[in-house]
Design a protein around this nucleic acid. Structure first.
Lengths: 227, 227
DNA sequence: ACCTGAACACCGTTCAAGT
DNA sequence: ACCTGAACACCGTTCAAGT
Protein backbone atom coordinates (compact mmCIF):
# COMPACT_ATOMS: atom_id res chain seq x y z
CA UNK A 1 0.00 0.00 0.00
CA UNK A 2 3.06 2.23 -0.25
CA UNK A 3 2.52 5.54 -2.06
CA UNK A 4 2.87 5.25 -5.83
CA UNK A 5 4.52 7.79 -8.05
CA UNK A 6 2.02 10.05 -9.87
CA UNK A 7 1.23 9.13 -13.46
CA UNK A 8 4.33 9.23 -15.60
CA UNK A 9 3.59 11.44 -18.64
CA UNK A 10 3.69 9.84 -22.09
CA UNK A 11 6.69 11.87 -23.20
CA UNK A 12 8.90 14.29 -21.26
CA UNK A 13 7.51 17.81 -20.79
CA UNK A 14 9.29 20.92 -21.84
CA UNK A 15 11.33 22.61 -19.12
CA UNK A 16 9.00 25.57 -18.62
CA UNK A 17 6.02 23.22 -18.58
CA UNK A 18 7.29 21.09 -15.71
CA UNK A 19 8.12 24.25 -13.82
CA UNK A 20 4.66 25.72 -14.36
CA UNK A 21 3.03 22.46 -13.36
CA UNK A 22 4.91 22.50 -10.09
CA UNK A 23 4.12 26.16 -9.43
CA UNK A 24 0.47 25.45 -10.13
CA UNK A 25 0.38 22.50 -7.75
CA UNK A 26 2.06 24.45 -4.95
CA UNK A 27 -0.29 27.41 -5.41
CA UNK A 28 -3.31 25.13 -5.51
CA UNK A 29 -2.23 23.27 -2.41
CA UNK A 30 -2.00 26.48 -0.40
CA UNK A 31 -5.09 28.08 -1.87
CA UNK A 32 -7.30 25.02 -1.35
CA UNK A 33 -6.07 24.50 2.20
CA UNK A 34 -6.85 28.10 3.10
CA UNK A 35 -10.09 28.69 1.28
CA UNK A 36 -11.51 25.27 0.59
CA UNK A 37 -12.41 23.88 -2.83
CA UNK A 38 -14.33 27.00 -3.79
CA UNK A 39 -11.31 29.22 -4.47
CA UNK A 40 -11.37 30.59 -7.99
CA UNK A 41 -9.03 29.07 -10.54
CA UNK A 42 -8.02 32.60 -11.49
CA UNK A 43 -6.73 33.09 -7.96
CA UNK A 44 -4.66 29.94 -8.16
CA UNK A 45 -3.30 30.82 -11.60
CA UNK A 46 -2.37 34.31 -10.44
CA UNK A 47 -0.68 32.89 -7.34
CA UNK A 48 1.35 30.62 -9.59
CA UNK A 49 2.16 33.50 -11.90
CA UNK A 50 0.58 31.98 -15.00
CA UNK A 51 -2.50 32.65 -17.10
CA UNK A 52 -5.72 30.69 -16.60
CA UNK A 53 -5.20 29.01 -19.94
CA UNK A 54 -2.00 27.45 -18.69
CA UNK A 55 -3.81 26.03 -15.70
CA UNK A 56 -6.33 24.32 -17.93
CA UNK A 57 -3.63 22.99 -20.18
CA UNK A 58 -2.11 21.09 -17.27
CA UNK A 59 -5.39 20.23 -15.55
CA UNK A 60 -8.26 20.01 -18.02
CA UNK A 61 -10.74 20.60 -15.24
CA UNK A 62 -10.76 22.21 -11.83
CA UNK A 63 -11.60 18.81 -10.39
CA UNK A 64 -8.44 17.36 -11.92
CA UNK A 65 -6.38 19.98 -10.13
CA UNK A 66 -8.14 19.22 -6.89
CA UNK A 67 -7.56 15.51 -7.31
CA UNK A 68 -3.87 16.14 -7.91
CA UNK A 69 -3.67 18.14 -4.69
CA UNK A 70 -5.73 15.61 -2.79
CA UNK A 71 -3.28 12.97 -3.86
CA UNK A 72 -0.94 14.08 -1.10
CA UNK A 73 -3.69 13.55 1.43
CA UNK A 74 -4.41 10.10 0.05
CA UNK A 75 -0.75 9.25 0.28
CA UNK A 76 -1.03 10.18 3.94
CA UNK A 77 -3.94 7.82 4.38
CA UNK A 78 -2.06 5.04 2.64
CA UNK A 79 0.83 5.60 5.03
CA UNK A 80 -1.46 5.42 8.05
CA UNK A 81 -2.79 2.12 6.75
CA UNK A 82 0.73 0.75 6.61
CA UNK A 83 1.25 1.93 10.17
CA UNK A 84 -2.03 0.36 11.22
CA UNK A 85 -0.89 -2.94 9.74
CA UNK A 86 2.36 -2.70 11.65
CA UNK A 87 0.66 -2.21 15.02
CA UNK A 88 0.87 -5.17 17.40
CA UNK A 89 -2.70 -4.81 18.66
CA UNK A 90 -5.18 -5.34 15.78
CA UNK A 91 -7.81 -3.06 17.31
CA UNK A 92 -5.30 -0.29 17.83
CA UNK A 93 -4.34 -0.65 14.20
CA UNK A 94 -7.89 0.10 13.09
CA UNK A 95 -8.17 2.97 15.56
CA UNK A 96 -4.93 4.39 14.20
CA UNK A 97 -6.18 4.41 10.61
CA UNK A 98 -9.48 6.05 11.45
CA UNK A 99 -7.90 8.58 13.79
CA UNK A 100 -5.31 9.60 11.21
CA UNK A 101 -8.00 9.95 8.58
CA UNK A 102 -10.26 12.08 10.74
CA UNK A 103 -7.32 14.20 11.83
CA UNK A 104 -6.52 14.80 8.18
CA UNK A 105 -10.12 15.77 7.53
CA UNK A 106 -10.11 18.21 10.42
CA UNK A 107 -6.84 19.83 9.36
CA UNK A 108 -7.54 20.25 5.68
CA UNK A 109 -10.97 21.51 4.70
CA UNK A 110 -10.34 20.39 1.16
CA UNK A 111 -10.19 16.72 2.00
CA UNK A 112 -13.50 16.50 3.75
CA UNK A 113 -15.45 18.84 1.54
CA UNK A 114 -14.30 17.45 -1.76
CA UNK A 115 -13.69 13.76 -1.19
CA UNK A 116 -17.23 12.80 -2.07
CA UNK A 117 -18.04 9.66 -4.02
CA UNK A 118 -17.84 11.62 -7.28
CA UNK A 119 -14.10 11.10 -7.01
CA UNK A 120 -14.64 7.41 -7.68
CA UNK A 121 -14.99 8.53 -11.26
CA UNK A 122 -11.37 9.67 -11.33
CA UNK A 123 -8.99 7.04 -12.58
CA UNK A 124 -5.99 8.04 -10.52
CA UNK A 125 -8.07 8.14 -7.36
CA UNK A 126 -9.43 4.72 -8.20
CA UNK A 127 -6.00 3.16 -8.39
CA UNK A 128 -5.04 4.63 -5.01
CA UNK A 129 -8.33 3.39 -3.59
CA UNK A 130 -7.75 -0.16 -4.76
CA UNK A 131 -4.40 -0.30 -3.06
CA UNK A 132 -5.76 1.11 0.18
CA UNK A 133 -8.69 -1.29 0.22
CA UNK A 134 -6.37 -4.27 0.36
CA UNK A 135 -4.60 -2.94 3.41
CA UNK A 136 -7.86 -2.09 5.11
CA UNK A 137 -9.21 -5.55 4.40
CA UNK A 138 -6.21 -7.08 6.14
CA UNK A 139 -6.61 -4.82 9.15
CA UNK A 140 -10.26 -5.70 9.52
CA UNK A 141 -9.78 -9.44 9.12
CA UNK A 142 -6.96 -9.35 11.63
CA UNK A 143 -9.22 -7.53 14.07
CA UNK A 144 -12.01 -10.01 13.53
CA UNK A 145 -9.74 -13.00 14.07
CA UNK A 146 -8.62 -11.41 17.33
CA UNK A 147 -12.26 -10.93 18.31
CA UNK A 148 -11.78 -7.18 18.52
CA UNK A 149 -13.94 -6.21 15.52
CA UNK A 150 -17.54 -7.24 14.85
CA UNK A 151 -17.85 -10.10 12.38
CA UNK A 152 -20.29 -8.49 9.96
CA UNK A 153 -17.98 -5.59 9.10
CA UNK A 154 -16.39 -5.64 5.63
CA UNK A 155 -13.63 -3.56 4.02
CA UNK A 156 -16.22 -2.07 1.68
CA UNK A 157 -17.86 -0.50 4.71
CA UNK A 158 -14.85 1.69 5.31
CA UNK A 159 -15.56 4.42 2.75
CA UNK A 160 -18.97 4.92 4.33
CA UNK A 161 -17.57 4.95 7.83
CA UNK A 162 -15.01 7.51 6.75
CA UNK A 163 -17.83 9.49 5.16
CA UNK A 164 -19.79 9.38 8.41
CA UNK A 165 -16.71 10.51 10.26
CA UNK A 166 -16.33 13.28 7.72
CA UNK A 167 -19.94 14.36 8.23
CA UNK A 168 -19.35 14.80 11.96
CA UNK A 169 -15.94 16.42 11.45
CA UNK A 170 -17.32 18.77 8.83
CA UNK A 171 -20.04 19.75 11.26
CA UNK A 172 -17.37 20.51 13.86
CA UNK A 173 -15.19 22.62 11.57
CA UNK A 174 -17.19 25.87 11.43
CA UNK A 175 -17.78 25.65 15.19
CA UNK A 176 -14.06 25.61 15.82
CA UNK A 177 -13.25 28.01 18.61
CA UNK A 178 -16.72 27.96 20.13
CA UNK A 179 -16.61 24.23 20.78
CA UNK A 180 -14.12 22.02 22.68
CA UNK A 181 -11.06 21.40 20.45
CA UNK A 182 -10.78 17.93 18.99
CA UNK A 183 -14.51 17.42 19.37
CA UNK A 184 -14.43 15.11 16.38
CA UNK A 185 -12.64 12.58 18.57
CA UNK A 186 -15.82 12.20 20.57
CA UNK A 187 -17.79 11.08 17.52
CA UNK A 188 -14.97 8.90 16.34
CA UNK A 189 -15.23 7.25 19.77
CA UNK A 190 -18.95 6.72 19.36
CA UNK A 191 -18.41 5.23 15.93
CA UNK A 192 -15.62 2.98 17.14
CA UNK A 193 -17.88 1.57 19.84
CA UNK A 194 -20.24 0.65 17.03
CA UNK A 195 -17.50 -1.36 15.34
CA UNK A 196 -16.79 -3.50 18.41
CA UNK A 197 -18.32 -6.93 18.83
CA UNK A 198 -19.61 -6.32 22.38
CA UNK A 199 -22.65 -4.22 21.59
CA UNK A 200 -23.15 -5.52 18.06
CA UNK A 201 -26.71 -6.13 16.86
CA UNK A 202 -27.56 -7.57 13.44
CA UNK A 203 -27.35 -4.95 10.68
CA UNK A 204 -30.43 -4.28 8.50
CA UNK A 205 -28.63 -4.31 5.13
CA UNK A 206 -25.76 -6.12 3.46
CA UNK A 207 -22.55 -4.30 2.64
CA UNK A 208 -21.87 -3.36 -0.98
CA UNK A 209 -19.41 -5.46 -2.94
CA UNK A 210 -16.12 -4.11 -4.24
CA UNK A 211 -17.51 -4.23 -7.79
CA UNK A 212 -20.56 -2.22 -6.83
CA UNK A 213 -18.38 0.48 -5.34
CA UNK A 214 -16.39 0.82 -8.54
CA UNK A 215 -19.46 0.82 -10.77
CA UNK A 216 -19.98 4.56 -10.38
CA UNK A 217 -19.28 6.65 -13.39
CA UNK A 218 -18.45 10.30 -13.04
CA UNK A 219 -21.64 11.50 -11.40
CA UNK A 220 -23.41 14.43 -13.01
CA UNK A 221 -21.54 17.27 -11.32
CA UNK A 222 -22.80 17.92 -7.83
CA UNK A 223 -21.61 19.09 -4.47
CA UNK A 224 -18.73 21.41 -3.90
CA UNK A 225 -17.40 21.03 -7.41
CA UNK A 226 -20.48 21.85 -9.45
CA UNK A 227 -20.49 24.96 -11.59
CA UNK B 1 -42.19 20.38 19.68
CA UNK B 2 -45.18 20.68 17.38
CA UNK B 3 -44.55 22.48 14.08
CA UNK B 4 -44.83 26.25 14.36
CA UNK B 5 -46.35 28.53 11.77
CA UNK B 6 -43.74 30.30 9.61
CA UNK B 7 -42.92 33.86 10.63
CA UNK B 8 -45.99 36.08 10.45
CA UNK B 9 -45.10 39.11 8.29
CA UNK B 10 -45.19 42.54 9.91
CA UNK B 11 -48.13 43.72 7.82
CA UNK B 12 -50.28 41.80 5.34
CA UNK B 13 -48.80 41.36 1.89
CA UNK B 14 -50.51 42.45 -1.26
CA UNK B 15 -52.58 39.79 -3.00
CA UNK B 16 -50.18 39.26 -5.93
CA UNK B 17 -47.25 39.17 -3.50
CA UNK B 18 -48.60 36.29 -1.41
CA UNK B 19 -49.41 34.43 -4.61
CA UNK B 20 -45.91 34.93 -6.00
CA UNK B 21 -44.37 33.90 -2.72
CA UNK B 22 -46.29 30.66 -2.81
CA UNK B 23 -45.44 30.01 -6.45
CA UNK B 24 -41.79 30.65 -5.66
CA UNK B 25 -41.80 28.26 -2.72
CA UNK B 26 -43.49 25.50 -4.71
CA UNK B 27 -41.08 25.93 -7.62
CA UNK B 28 -38.09 25.97 -5.29
CA UNK B 29 -39.28 22.88 -3.47
CA UNK B 30 -39.49 20.89 -6.70
CA UNK B 31 -36.32 22.32 -8.21
CA UNK B 32 -34.20 21.75 -5.12
CA UNK B 33 -35.51 18.21 -4.63
CA UNK B 34 -34.65 17.33 -8.23
CA UNK B 35 -31.38 19.11 -8.73
CA UNK B 36 -30.02 19.76 -5.26
CA UNK B 37 -29.09 23.14 -3.84
CA UNK B 38 -27.10 24.08 -6.93
CA UNK B 39 -30.05 24.81 -9.20
CA UNK B 40 -29.90 28.33 -10.58
CA UNK B 41 -32.23 30.91 -9.08
CA UNK B 42 -33.18 31.90 -12.64
CA UNK B 43 -34.49 28.37 -13.15
CA UNK B 44 -36.62 28.60 -10.05
CA UNK B 45 -37.91 32.06 -10.94
CA UNK B 46 -38.80 30.95 -14.47
CA UNK B 47 -40.53 27.86 -13.10
CA UNK B 48 -42.58 30.13 -10.83
CA UNK B 49 -43.32 32.48 -13.73
CA UNK B 50 -41.69 35.54 -12.19
CA UNK B 51 -38.57 37.59 -12.76
CA UNK B 52 -35.39 37.02 -10.75
CA UNK B 53 -35.91 40.38 -9.06
CA UNK B 54 -39.16 39.17 -7.55
CA UNK B 55 -37.42 36.14 -6.11
CA UNK B 56 -34.88 38.31 -4.35
CA UNK B 57 -37.59 40.64 -3.06
CA UNK B 58 -39.18 37.72 -1.20
CA UNK B 59 -35.96 35.94 -0.30
CA UNK B 60 -33.03 38.36 0.00
CA UNK B 61 -30.58 35.53 -0.55
CA UNK B 62 -30.62 32.13 -2.17
CA UNK B 63 -29.87 30.67 1.23
CA UNK B 64 -33.04 32.25 2.64
CA UNK B 65 -35.07 30.52 -0.04
CA UNK B 66 -33.39 27.23 0.74
CA UNK B 67 -34.05 27.66 4.45
CA UNK B 68 -37.72 28.33 3.73
CA UNK B 69 -37.93 25.13 1.69
CA UNK B 70 -35.99 23.16 4.27
CA UNK B 71 -38.48 24.28 6.86
CA UNK B 72 -40.86 21.60 5.65
CA UNK B 73 -38.19 18.98 6.24
CA UNK B 74 -37.53 20.31 9.72
CA UNK B 75 -41.24 20.16 10.47
CA UNK B 76 -41.04 16.49 9.50
CA UNK B 77 -38.19 15.97 11.92
CA UNK B 78 -40.10 17.72 14.68
CA UNK B 79 -43.03 15.38 14.02
CA UNK B 80 -40.80 12.32 14.22
CA UNK B 81 -39.52 13.55 17.58
CA UNK B 82 -43.08 13.75 18.86
CA UNK B 83 -43.64 10.20 17.61
CA UNK B 84 -40.42 9.09 19.27
CA UNK B 85 -41.60 10.55 22.55
CA UNK B 86 -44.90 8.71 22.20
CA UNK B 87 -43.25 5.31 21.72
CA UNK B 88 -43.59 2.88 24.64
CA UNK B 89 -40.03 1.58 24.34
CA UNK B 90 -37.49 4.39 24.95
CA UNK B 91 -34.83 2.84 22.71
CA UNK B 92 -37.32 2.39 19.89
CA UNK B 93 -38.19 6.06 20.28
CA UNK B 94 -34.60 7.10 19.60
CA UNK B 95 -34.33 4.66 16.73
CA UNK B 96 -37.49 6.10 15.24
CA UNK B 97 -36.16 9.65 15.31
CA UNK B 98 -32.84 8.77 13.72
CA UNK B 99 -34.42 6.49 11.13
CA UNK B 100 -36.92 9.14 10.10
CA UNK B 101 -34.16 11.72 9.84
CA UNK B 102 -31.91 9.52 7.73
CA UNK B 103 -34.82 8.53 5.54
CA UNK B 104 -35.53 12.20 4.96
CA UNK B 105 -31.90 12.77 4.07
CA UNK B 106 -31.92 9.92 1.61
CA UNK B 107 -35.12 11.07 -0.08
CA UNK B 108 -34.30 14.74 -0.42
CA UNK B 109 -30.80 15.64 -1.59
CA UNK B 110 -31.38 19.19 -0.45
CA UNK B 111 -31.66 18.31 3.21
CA UNK B 112 -28.41 16.48 3.48
CA UNK B 113 -26.32 18.68 1.23
CA UNK B 114 -27.42 21.99 2.63
CA UNK B 115 -28.17 21.38 6.29
CA UNK B 116 -24.64 22.20 7.37
CA UNK B 117 -23.86 24.12 10.51
CA UNK B 118 -23.94 27.41 8.56
CA UNK B 119 -27.68 27.20 9.01
CA UNK B 120 -27.23 27.80 12.71
CA UNK B 121 -26.76 31.39 11.65
CA UNK B 122 -30.35 31.55 10.43
CA UNK B 123 -32.77 32.82 13.04
CA UNK B 124 -35.76 30.85 11.92
CA UNK B 125 -33.75 27.65 11.83
CA UNK B 126 -32.46 28.41 15.30
CA UNK B 127 -35.94 28.65 16.79
CA UNK B 128 -36.92 25.32 15.25
CA UNK B 129 -33.72 23.81 16.55
CA UNK B 130 -34.35 24.94 20.10
CA UNK B 131 -37.77 23.33 20.13
CA UNK B 132 -36.45 20.07 18.73
CA UNK B 133 -33.57 19.92 21.18
CA UNK B 134 -35.95 19.81 24.12
CA UNK B 135 -37.79 16.82 22.71
CA UNK B 136 -34.55 15.05 21.91
CA UNK B 137 -33.24 15.68 25.40
CA UNK B 138 -36.32 13.99 26.85
CA UNK B 139 -35.93 11.00 24.54
CA UNK B 140 -32.30 10.53 25.49
CA UNK B 141 -32.85 10.91 29.24
CA UNK B 142 -35.73 8.46 29.06
CA UNK B 143 -33.48 6.00 27.26
CA UNK B 144 -30.71 6.44 29.78
CA UNK B 145 -33.07 5.90 32.72
CA UNK B 146 -34.23 2.69 31.10
CA UNK B 147 -30.60 1.65 30.67
CA UNK B 148 -31.00 1.50 26.90
CA UNK B 149 -28.76 4.45 26.02
CA UNK B 150 -25.16 5.04 27.13
CA UNK B 151 -24.86 7.48 30.01
CA UNK B 152 -22.34 9.87 28.49
CA UNK B 153 -24.56 10.81 25.54
CA UNK B 154 -26.07 14.31 25.61
CA UNK B 155 -28.75 16.00 23.49
CA UNK B 156 -26.08 18.30 22.08
CA UNK B 157 -24.47 15.25 20.50
CA UNK B 158 -27.44 14.74 18.26
CA UNK B 159 -26.60 17.34 15.57
CA UNK B 160 -23.23 15.66 15.12
CA UNK B 161 -24.71 12.20 15.03
CA UNK B 162 -27.19 13.38 12.43
CA UNK B 163 -24.27 14.92 10.53
CA UNK B 164 -22.41 11.63 10.65
CA UNK B 165 -25.51 9.85 9.42
CA UNK B 166 -25.76 12.45 6.69
CA UNK B 167 -22.15 11.85 5.68
CA UNK B 168 -22.80 8.15 5.17
CA UNK B 169 -26.16 8.75 3.49
CA UNK B 170 -24.67 11.38 1.20
CA UNK B 171 -21.99 8.90 0.24
CA UNK B 172 -24.69 6.36 -0.61
CA UNK B 173 -26.79 8.74 -2.72
CA UNK B 174 -24.68 8.86 -5.92
CA UNK B 175 -24.19 5.11 -5.74
CA UNK B 176 -27.94 4.55 -5.80
CA UNK B 177 -28.76 1.81 -8.27
CA UNK B 178 -25.32 0.20 -8.14
CA UNK B 179 -25.51 -0.48 -4.45
CA UNK B 180 -28.11 -2.36 -2.29
CA UNK B 181 -31.13 -0.07 -1.72
CA UNK B 182 -31.43 1.36 1.78
CA UNK B 183 -27.73 0.86 2.35
CA UNK B 184 -27.79 3.85 4.71
CA UNK B 185 -29.69 1.65 7.18
CA UNK B 186 -26.56 -0.40 7.59
CA UNK B 187 -24.56 2.56 8.80
CA UNK B 188 -27.40 3.79 10.94
CA UNK B 189 -27.25 0.35 12.54
CA UNK B 190 -23.53 0.67 13.15
CA UNK B 191 -24.02 4.10 14.68
CA UNK B 192 -26.89 2.91 16.85
CA UNK B 193 -24.73 0.15 18.27
CA UNK B 194 -22.35 2.91 19.28
CA UNK B 195 -25.10 4.62 21.25
CA UNK B 196 -25.91 1.54 23.32
CA UNK B 197 -24.45 1.06 26.78
CA UNK B 198 -23.23 -2.51 26.17
CA UNK B 199 -20.13 -1.75 24.16
CA UNK B 200 -19.57 1.75 25.50
CA UNK B 201 -16.00 2.86 26.19
CA UNK B 202 -15.12 6.25 27.69
CA UNK B 203 -15.19 9.05 25.10
CA UNK B 204 -12.07 11.17 24.54
CA UNK B 205 -13.80 14.58 24.58
CA UNK B 206 -16.68 16.26 26.34
CA UNK B 207 -19.83 17.17 24.45
CA UNK B 208 -20.40 20.82 23.54
CA UNK B 209 -22.86 22.81 25.60
CA UNK B 210 -26.08 24.19 24.19
CA UNK B 211 -24.64 27.71 24.38
CA UNK B 212 -21.55 26.71 22.44
CA UNK B 213 -23.71 25.28 19.67
CA UNK B 214 -25.61 28.54 19.31
CA UNK B 215 -22.48 30.70 19.38
CA UNK B 216 -21.93 30.35 15.65
CA UNK B 217 -22.52 33.40 13.58
CA UNK B 218 -23.26 33.08 9.90
CA UNK B 219 -20.06 31.41 8.76
CA UNK B 220 -18.20 33.03 5.89
CA UNK B 221 -20.04 31.41 3.00
CA UNK B 222 -18.82 27.92 2.36
CA UNK B 223 -20.00 24.59 1.12
CA UNK B 224 -22.88 24.09 -1.25
CA UNK B 225 -24.12 27.63 -0.86
CA UNK B 226 -20.98 29.59 -1.61
CA UNK B 227 -20.77 31.70 -4.72
C1' DA C 1 5.11 22.66 -27.68
C1' DC C 2 3.73 25.70 -24.71
C1' DC C 3 1.90 30.20 -22.94
C1' DT C 4 -1.25 34.24 -22.97
C1' DG C 5 -5.34 36.84 -22.18
C1' DA C 6 -9.57 38.22 -24.35
C1' DA C 7 -13.93 36.04 -24.82
C1' DC C 8 -18.04 32.89 -23.74
C1' DA C 9 -21.76 31.11 -21.16
C1' DC C 10 -22.89 30.85 -16.96
C1' DC C 11 -23.79 32.29 -11.78
C1' DG C 12 -26.02 35.19 -7.56
C1' DT C 13 -27.51 39.73 -6.89
C1' DT C 14 -28.94 44.71 -7.71
C1' DC C 15 -31.56 48.50 -9.25
C1' DA C 16 -33.74 51.94 -12.37
C1' DA C 17 -37.89 51.88 -14.56
C1' DG C 18 -42.44 50.65 -14.87
C1' DT C 19 -47.60 49.48 -12.96
C1' DA D 1 -46.21 48.22 -2.88
C1' DC D 2 -44.82 45.25 -5.91
C1' DC D 3 -42.91 43.49 -10.36
C1' DT D 4 -39.68 43.45 -14.39
C1' DG D 5 -35.55 42.62 -16.87
C1' DA D 6 -31.26 44.71 -18.17
C1' DA D 7 -26.92 45.12 -15.93
C1' DC D 8 -22.93 43.97 -12.67
C1' DA D 9 -19.27 41.35 -10.85
C1' DC D 10 -18.23 37.12 -10.60
C1' DC D 11 -17.38 31.94 -12.04
C1' DG D 12 -15.18 27.69 -14.92
C1' DT D 13 -13.62 26.99 -19.46
C1' DT D 14 -12.10 27.80 -24.42
C1' DC D 15 -9.39 29.29 -28.16
C1' DA D 16 -7.10 32.38 -31.54
C1' DA D 17 -2.91 34.49 -31.43
C1' DG D 18 1.62 34.72 -30.13
C1' DT D 19 6.73 32.72 -28.86
Amino acid sequence: VSPEAPDAPERPLRADAVRNRELLLAAAREAFAEGGPDVAVRTIAKRAGVGPGTLFRHFPTKRDLLVAVLDGAFAGMAASIDEGLAAEDPWEGLVHVLTATAELQSRDRTVLEAAGPELFGDEHFRRRMDGMMEGIARIIVRGQEAGAVRDDLTPEDLPFIVAALGGATEHCAPLEGDVPPGLWRRYLGLLLDGLRPEGAHPLPARAPTHEQLLAVKVAKGSGALAG
